[in-house]
Amino acid sequence: MKGRPVLGIISGLLFGFFVALLLQQLAIAPLTTLTLIGLPIAGVVLGIVLSAWAPLGRR
């Protein structure tokens, strides 16, 4: 891991949760299992991928 995996997992989980809430508030998708559970899981995956890849910052 070149980036910050713990930060990536926690922020990815919360980001997915907030995106699910935002989609509900914007009347795009209701809070189904797919959004309320699936998006935080996708956020965790994204956090792991981003922290493993770590494309930003000094090389």
Partner: peptide
């Protein structure tokens, strides 16, 4: 959403 999105981006820094 904005705060956690920016924090998620922060995890991508080396």
């Amino acid at each position: 959403t904005i705060v956690t999105g920016l924090t998620l981006l922060g995890s991508a820094f080396r």
